[in-house]
Every structure is written in C-alpha cells, then in structure tokens.
Design a protein around this nucleic acid. Structure first.
Lengths: 191, 191, 191, 191
DNA sequence: TATGAATGAGGATTCATTCAT
DNA sequence: AATGAATGAATCCTCATTCAT
C-alpha cells in the first residue's frame, strides 16, 4: 500500500529538520566555511545526494537555518504582546531569558554571531533580521520613553548593545561568566 | 655587488607589512576562509609565492596579524602604567578611545570579532590574547575595588562585556549608532 | 532507487584497482616524484578528485601499491609451504621464477628498486617489507644449513644479494641480458 | 690589488666543488626531486643566486655530479692498466675495493643507484656510463676467456650483476651485511 | 663574484554539486 | 525518496629560476 500524501509530507519535514539540526551542530562547531556537506550529512545520518533534494545548496541550508533560528529565538525570547509596549516585568524577563537562552543554546548564538560577522553571508539575512527585530525595538523605545528617559532611542540602542555584549561573553565563556550577578546589575541599571 | 644586510632587512620589513596590511583588509572584508591567498597577494601587489617567503601558511598570516593587531590596539588603547591600577580618568579614556578606535579602524575589530567566533581559528590566538589582556583586567578590577564596588570581579566582567557589545554594534552600524551619546551613558554608569 | 551495497562495493573495487594499475605504470615510468596526480588519474581515465575518494594522498597510493605488489610477487614467487624449509627444487624454482617475473613485469621491479633508493619513500614500506620477507629468509637459511654450508646466514644474504643484482640488470637491460644462461649459472652455484 | 687570474680560477673551482659536495649530500639524503636548491645552497653555505653562476640548472648540477662521481669511482676502483686484461689479482682487488668503496662512500652509491632508476635522468648519463665502463667490461671478458670459461661474455655479465647486487645490499644495510665473508665467497667463486 | 627578494608556473588537495541507478 | 561514486573548479602551497643591486 503506497503511503498517503500526509505520510510523505511528514517524512519530508522530519528529514529536513534532521538536516537543519545537523547543520547547526556542524556550523557551530566548525564555522560555516569549514563545515563540509559531507560532515553535515554524516551527522544527519543521510546521504549527500538527499540533502540536495531538500536544499538548493549549502548556502541555502545556512539561510533556512538562520531564519529558523531567528524565529525560534524571538519566539522564545518573548512573545510580543499586542499593545507593543514593554513593562518593567517585560524588561526583567527580557534580561533573564536573554541570558538563559545563551547558556542553554550556545550553538544558536555562536551561529548567530558568526554569521553576523561574515559580510557576504550577513547580507543574506540582515534584512530579514531587522524586519523581525523592529517590533521589539519599538516596544523598548516606548518603555524608555514612558520611564522618562531623556533620549529613549539612544537608550534603546545602548540597551541592545549591552545585551549583545553580555550574551557574547556568556557564549564565549559560559563556565566562568557570572551570569546571575550580571543579571542583577542589568536589572538594577535598566529598571 | 649584493645589497647590504640592512637593505635586505628594510625590504623584508616593508614586504611583510604590505602583506599583513593586505591580509587585514581582505580578511575583514571576506572572512578568513573566504579570503584567498590570491586575493591577499593581489591586494598587496605581490606574487603569490612571496607570501610564503614571509609566512608559513595562510593560517600563519592570520596568527601574526592578530598578534600584531592586539599589540597595536592595546598600545593605542592605553599604555598601562606601572602602578597597575586604573583611575577615573583612565576609565573615561578607555571608554572614549575604545569607541573611537572602532569607528576609526573597523577592520581591526571585524577581524577581532570574527576570529573570536571561529573555533578553529580562535584556538590559535586565544592563549596569547588572554595573556595580553590580563594586566588590563587586573587594573580594572582594582579600579572597581577602590570605588567600593561590592563585587569588583563581577563588575569588571560586566564592564568588559558592555564595552564589547557597544563596540560590536558600533562596528556593525557605524553610520547610525549614537556613539557620542552612548559614551556619555557609559561614563555616567561606570564612573 | 539507489544501488545495492554489493553494487557499490564492486564499483569501488574496480575503480581502486584502475587507479593502482595506472599509478604503477606512471610511477615506474617517471618515478614517484615526477609522476603527477594528473598523469595517474588521466592514465586511469578518471577525474583527479576521485583518486582522493580512494586514497588519502599520492603517498598513500604508493604505499598501498607497494604492499599490493609485494604480496602479489611473494604469492607468485613461491607459496611458502608449512614446513618452512626450502628444498633444492624450491630454490631452482625460486631462481627461475625470480628472473622470469622481472622479464614479465618489469614495472613491478622498477618500482620496487626505485622505492628502495628513496629514503623518504622507503621508510613508508620498509617495516612491512621486512616482515613479509622474513619467512623466506628463514626458509632459505634452513636450506643452506641442511646443505651443510658452513655459514648459512652469510650464504643466505649472499644469495639474496646475487638474486637482486641479477634482477636489477635484467630489469635495466632485458633485451640483451643473457637470462637463461645466467639461470643455469645460478643453479650450478647454489644447488 | 686585484686578484690574479689564477686566484679567480682557484676560487671558482673551490666554489664549484663546494656546491657539488653539498648537492651530493642532499641528493643522497633526500633524492634528486625532493632536494631543493635552497637546501643545496644552504648546505654549501652560499646564496641561491651563486649556484646559477656555476651551473645552468639543478639538473645540470646532477649531471656534473654524476659524471664526477663515475670518474672518481672508476678511478679509485681500479686504474686500468694498458694491457687491458685483468689478472686474478685484479679481480680480487676489484671485489675487495668494490665492496669497501660502498662501505666508505655510501652517498656516492645511493646516488648512482637512484639515478639509474629514474628513467628521465638516466638517459642523461647512461650513454656516458656505458662508454666509461666499456674497457672494464672488455678486460673482464678477457679474464674469463683466459680462465677457460665456456661463455666469457655471459660470465662477465653475471659477475657484474652479482657485484651490483652485493653493493646494493651493502649500501642498504651497511651495518649488518657480512661484507668480509661475502668477499671470500666471491673470490672463491670467480677466481 | 655574490646576495636573497621576487616571480609564477605547476602540483597536490579539497569539496560543493551532479547523476546514474 | 535515497545512495554514494564521480566530477572539476578552486585553492593552498612549492620551488626552480631570475634579477636588481
């Protein structure tokens, strides 16, 4: 009995995901350029040819992966509420979750950062990234405005940069970075 | 009649520097792996072979480059005084210079950050980097201790992370990042 | 529908052998260092890349080739019987076959000798060679001991050297070397 | 005061010899192809450029070296007397000196043998070699004819081959090869 | 005569991608 | 859908040779 359309669909999705997971692992460990298609497919437990059934190219895998990661991160980071304005609790949550996520999924972040540093690759995802980040920027802007910060736009960018710096150090040295204490400092500063 | 030892020395130094300069440019623009030896030597205006008169390999070029950059940056950043303790003015200077350097020499920083993200490459220079950074860490630690900060070690790591985050954003978006305002925020926070 | 495991196995074996055959031809004609990978793969009628699917490097090809050749030669030379002692007939056979093989397969011998002269290359296969030759040495030793030779160890080494010398000249000048007459001289001397 | 012509001549000769000596050493250790001009000139203690003042090319160095070696070996081997016929003592001497020379100057022999195995290189010197060896062949032929050997030509080729085989083994394993005992066996056989 | 920086053609090796099955 | 053998362009690196001084 032939498989139903739904079954095929399921198989396809699973295979795709297996490949993306493997790619993430290998990209994070070796960097995009050093990672070979062979390593990715071996990690995924499939043949080289099959990868090209699901993705146009190695670059396509990266692109899909990045979009998926960004979506996942944003999703987990904080589901933006409709009012589009952050409360103090939102910011506290943002800080806590932001740091915890790095400690939990350093792979995601290594890839995110390493891609952001590779000019050619960056252009692939930069536009999309800005677009997705926009609502958060706005919400944060509002938060600082409400707090009576003199120049909320500047503060927002300052805050973003600070968070990225913390996450960067967290990612590079998750063992000894004093994450919990730093969270407190952040909360003290931005609330 | 052959050239004198000194003449050869000069020639060697100049060629070496030409290669390092070119490598910096190309690595920063394309990333280490995408940068071809051909691109580096063409940029330097020399033959491919000559590069191998001065460096064992492409990797060796990167290594030498990174060490050179780190030394240069540290030098300009702030010549560490013998007392090994930062004053308020030192910190203000550190902040100002730190941000200005990124705006002036984005190449250096792109390379610095991109290397930090590539595990294989990182391992080449990590040890040396830590060693060179050590005195600054200690001096900063002392500064915060003197200021009566409760946990100077944590504050020092927080400060490093914040500075890196600022520099990172500065580097990615030098056009619109509000560098001057952020400097003021930093000084307000850490002095 | 992919090929079966067995089909792939067959394909691999055939390609591998094609490469080894081609390598033998080219190495023997041009020597190891002058032989280019391009020449080998063109001779084998395959792409350059494929060689690296089957062998780690050009050196690896040489190594595998030498081991294969030595095994093949030993096999044809004389399947060593379990008693591990040569009879007169064995020695006669050894002499005849030893010379005939050179005339039939000069390539094998050119490679064998040329490798023996290249220190870097030699070290790759020397150990294996000694190991494989050991039983023959012992069997010959026994033969001379049984014949009442005063110093069988010396005679054995003498015999080996003489055979190699004959084979060497045979190989260099197969057209005019009086192989048949020399066989008779050898048999007269060592039986 | 400028040097006299004679002095220049002397300097030239010495430099040439220094290069040839160095080349011999390096060729024997690494083989012709693996030996770099750099290694040769460094060993000789001169600059790369200077080598090309004395020799057209690396191949030219090899050629000159081979001719020199052959002449030297032949010279030491046995100054052929005018009668052009070997006596028993000549043959004994030939055997003894032939083996001793290998033990004393393995470098010369390694080069001699290794060159003989490299087809392209061989053609350069083969003609010359035959020409120089001719008188010895003839003299040996005469010796065996006088001894009443049935087929002196065959015996002569047999003898040459045997000597080469002994020398080959001597060269490959000078430490354990029983040179003295083998000399006696040879003398017993061919006198 | 002597130097060694510079060249560039040539060779080994890698790896994303294709394709017959 | 799935396989992995096969391809070849791209890349790193070597080294004999040249040349300005």
């Amino acid at each position: 009995m032939p498989r139903t359309k739904g079954q095929f669909e399921t198989i396809r999705k699973e295979s795709r995901q297996k490949i993306l997971d493997a790619a993430l692992e290998v990209f994070a460990k070796q960097g995009y350029h050093s990672a070979t298609v062979d390593a990715i497919t071996k990690t995924a437990g499939i043949s080289k040819g099959l990868m090209y059934n699901y993705f146009k190219s190695k670059e396509d895998v990266l692109q899909e992966l990045m979009l998926g990661i960004m979506e996942a991160l944003m999703c987990e980071y904080m589901p933006l509420k409709s009012e589009e304005k952050f409360t103090e609790d939102d910011i506290i949550n943002f800080i806590n979750v932001g740091i915890d996520l790095v400690l939990e999924k350093p792979h995601y972040w290594k890839l995110y950062f390493s891609v952001a540093l590779q000019p050619e690759v960056m252009s692939i995802v930069f536009g999309k990234m800005m677009e997705m980040g926009q609502p958060y920027m706005i919400a944060m802007n509002e938060y600082f405005r409400d707090k009576g910060v003199e120049n909320p736009e500047v503060m927002m960018r300052y805050f973003s940069a600070v968070m990225d710096g913390i996450q960067f150090h967290c990612m590079l040295d998750p063992k000894t970075f004093p994450a919990e204490e730093v969270k407190k400092l952040l909360i003290g500063q931005f609330i």
